[in-house]
Amino acid sequence: MSDNRPLRWFLYGYLALVFTFIFAPILFSVIFSFNSDRFPTIPLGSFTLKWYQTVWNDPDVWEAARTSLTVSLSTATIATLLGFATAYTDYRYSFRLKPVYLGLVLLPPTIPLIIMALAMLAWFAKLGISGQVMSIIIAHSVLTAPFAMAIIRLRLSQMDPSLESAAWNLGASQWSALRRVIVPFCLPAIISSFCLTAAVSFDEFAISWFVSGLNKTIPVIILEIVTGNIDPQVNAIGSFVFLVSMTLVIIAQVVLMTRRKKEV
């Protein structure tokens, strides 16, 4: 492609602008979490850690954090299992109603959360299981299973189909071929789908808000502070969660790079 220097710089500048737009709210959220004023406005007040202290000392936040973790880890487990089974079915078998089958699996993300929330709440109330942590887990699994399926299916499509049949020819049963060949090959995708579904569930608020009853997750607490007694605790919680995930991300990058070097 012809190298057009001004164009290239223009495009990079544009890219920087777009990233500014994307990161501005995150950045300001962090800034305001250290701002002493209860209502975040310009000019800033003084530097303070009191919002972090408030959050840290609030048992409700910890309780919500525990609920959130329970929900997101359970969701991730269920969604990944379902996703794996479905992806494997799609990879290995073809059958008459497959489009319907795939539609059933992949449709949920196209339904707006608010509608899912309303439908789930009514349905759970009908079944008599509304207002429990379990209701959130079920709802989130429905929502995230398609993502798990997509990630694992993508990985399977990179696999040489003859591998599995080779295992059968060597006398392995379907189960042991699955265990020895398919699962190890998909492991990265399985882990990655586990983490992705956990992350999606961890940040989902609309359905949680509707179906959770008295069991609050972190996003529900945030929503409650935003709709209720607005104050920078929101920013503190947000920044804290962000900080933790970013630290882990960076550590992961570093670990990955060192491992790559070793491999070389």
């Binding site: 990233f19 501005a24 300001f28 959220s29 608020f205 945030i222 935003v226 920013n235 919680i237």
Partner: peptide, 24 residues
């Protein structure tokens, strides 16, 4: 790196970001 950066927002609360826009 850019794609990696674009995934970051998914790890921050959408509500918190909206609240931030409110202030901005």
């Amino acid at each position: 790196w850019a794609i990696f950066m674009l995934i970051i927002p998914f790890f921050t609360s959408y509500l918190v970001r909206i609240f931030s826009w409110y202030v901005i």
